[in-house]
Amino acid sequence: MKTVALTCIECPVGCRIEVDLEENKVLAVRGNSCLRGKMYAENEVVCPKRVVTSTVKTTDGRMLPVKTDKPVPKTEIFAVMQKINSATATTPVKIGDVIIKAVCEDANVVATGNAE
């Protein structure tokens, strides 16, 4: 068995969490203050994932803020960024509009800002 120490990034509290692991199987999670933290820790030791936030150029030359609507594996972040940087969003765009479908597994890139 090994124990991994983590800092939870789900909220600003930043709890220090310890996870007991046996060959990629989580045995115990300690130190979290809520369920979100437990889920974060369980995922983090197996396949860490992050939401990617960035910008996409619009057809009228402005920058549109975007994010992945689900966390993507950390190892895929730069591949996702490459797709984001070669995309263009056609205006008008509203918050929540899908800009790139299935950028990574079932995660889409969606607008987080409005552009008329």
């Binding site: 939401v51 936030t53 803020p65 994010k67 918050i95 987080t112 800002g113 409005n114």
Partner: peptide, 9 residues
Amino acid sequence: SLSGPEYAA
């Protein structure tokens, strides 16, 4: 968990 522009909107 919102982005800044979403929170402002």
